[in-house]
Design a protein around this nucleic acid. Sequence first.
DNA 1: ACTCGGTACTGTACCGATCAAGTTGATCGA
DNA 2: TCGATCAACTTGATCGGTACAGTACCGAGT
Lengths: 355, 355
Amino acid sequence: MARKVTLQTIAEHLGVSRTTVSNAYNRPDQLAPELRERVLATAADLGYTGPDAAARRLRSGGREAIGLLFTESLAYAFNDPGAVQFLQGFSRATEEAGIALLLLPGFAGRPGTTHRGRERKEAVREAVVAGFCAYSLPVDDPDFAAAVERRLPLVVVDEPRTGDHTFVGIDDRAGGRLAAAHLAALGHRRIGVVSFRTADDGYAGPLTREREAVATYPVSLARLVGWREGLEAAGIAWDDVVKEERVTNAPEEGALGLRAVLARAPDVTAILCSTDQMALGALRAAAEAGRDDLSFVGFDDIPAAGALGLTTIRQPLMEKGLTAGRLLVDPPAEGAPREIVLPVELVPRGSTRPA
Amino acid sequence: MARKVTLQTIAEHLGVSRTTVSNAYNRPDQLAPELRERVLATAADLGYTGPDAAARRLRSGGREAIGLLFTESLAYAFNDPGAVQFLQGFSRATEEAGIALLLLPGFAGRPGTTHRGRERKEAVREAVVAGFCAYSLPVDDPDFAAAVERRLPLVVVDEPRTGDHTFVGIDDRAGGRLAAAHLAALGHRRIGVVSFRTADDGYAGPLTREREAVATYPVSLARLVGWREGLEAAGIAWDDVVKEERVTNAPEEGALGLRAVLARAPDVTAILCSTDQMALGALRAAAEAGRDDLSFVGFDDIPAAGALGLTTIRQPLMEKGLTAGRLLVDPPAEGAPREIVLPVELVPRGSTRPA
DNA sequence: ACTCGGTACTGTACCGATCAAGTTGATCGA
DNA sequence: TCGATCAACTTGATCGGTACAGTACCGAGT
């Protein structure tokens, strides 16, 4: 294959120096307009794609992008209203600073790749960024480890809350308690739970104590614990609660979860869901099954929750993104890592009624 | 300020060579585990952030990201369901190739920046990417010009369709005709139009022939032309149509547009909207004004359109993204630029009724 | 005793540009 | 006529790494 076209190639073609060619691009006032034209023309001829961005960055610096690491595939993230809201806030922060946003590929990988291939880890190592944001990654995520290794400014959103890194999130446990207390106050005693996955093993089915014990998704777990505390405070035993775990945060999964709960315990009167997305699916599945007597509480308060009257625990999704973004755009001076916990709040709507 | 910490710094501290330190990171098998530990330890001490990504990329290559350029601010894009759907498809393509996605900052800029500052142009020049996708940019966009200058693989989505670059889009004009013909077929004769902006001058108000003439947003214009052709084919004069132009693609703007139309022509029976987002706002405003006699047709078929029963022109948003992404992930061999036009289709729903 | 192979490192060139400090030759004011 | 100024380039160093080709040393095989 022919040698790569560089400034040098063009310089030789024209019998001028590299620097002159460089100036044609970066300092038009430094050379004769006529020569500049010729440089640009031969550059076009030779298929030169302009000064190599990596090289010029090495020499001259320039503001760097911020890398963003998602739980799952990007394609999934864009399907998750919560993630999109987060991105909206986050991008506002980077944008205000004139900084680009590098979305790292998720584990979708190319066909032959294993679950979480090395590709993504490589991508993390190669990313030309000034810092990373890890959005809701499980505790044992190897990509998160790769990001930590880069030793760049790092902000963790939601999980994994290591204590060693700047953190932005909410008090999921308190949110869970609010949701459970709300149902209990309405007189519900037979409760079902549709939970987001607790670990990355693809399991779907009854959520056992054993699974709770080894959970690698702290947010899922914290919500579970919150529910438990809220229910127990009202005298409802956790073991009497019918719990179903599903894999992804999508309406269809919520629907499946609800059906599983109803199959095991047709007498439940209220359902706690890990997320609004799942709750909305469960809501629809309940309607389809003719069970419009059920109450539902979600979590997150995505826009659709308001539109469809879902009672939920609100968390400030956009603000979370904005806060995380700002922490990366100009990282605070050294010191103890900051941990920012944003408030949650119960938003009662039509989906919950007295038992 | 102290000299920047590099491989060299660490090498000197330990009395070993640069290469050895480099190997500690990249080829652990090339040195004694014990030494490697020491290298990593002093690196940590000195606050070394690991081998510089730009430098290593310069020397060793590595797969590069794809840059994405949006119409407006990123924060806005994430608020636009159409853009999000596009992103979903696009990211699936890049992800399958294990490539990262670089979202370039929009013109939100930092406080002191002018409308479309140089910052963004700089960002385009500095972006370490293998190619660009321009998503729905106006014809005179300077950032688009900057991207063209980079002479990297470039795919234009929707606009500006230059003829010189690979293009992915739809036949907006045909879509417009379908929408107009649908209303005409239902017997509507007094029609109102709520249009997305035709130029980047911040204008909002009646959409005149003069503005149509100087439009810099070809998609807006094509939809207008399509409506016109469709209506004229049914014997409705374009000048009799009450047209209002609004700035951004958001529900509130659609609501404002509708109110303006009704103020000028309370006797309209149907409304054509440039986008579903605007149509949904208009729909709500109509309900608020007690005008539930009006028919509405949108454009795009975003998810919410289905949920709220809006008649619309469907375009395959996700597929558009997927197609554009694939064209960038492995660019087709040289040759005439490809122009891919995806199909549109009328989706009749509850928002249109006979006059 | 001598080659052989392997381990653990070193030295130097080079990646593709930009930068700071020259070098030229032409123009110009006094 | 002479030095000063300026426009239009060139030279060599440098950015922070990695690749590649050694070198030095050591234990094993014959």
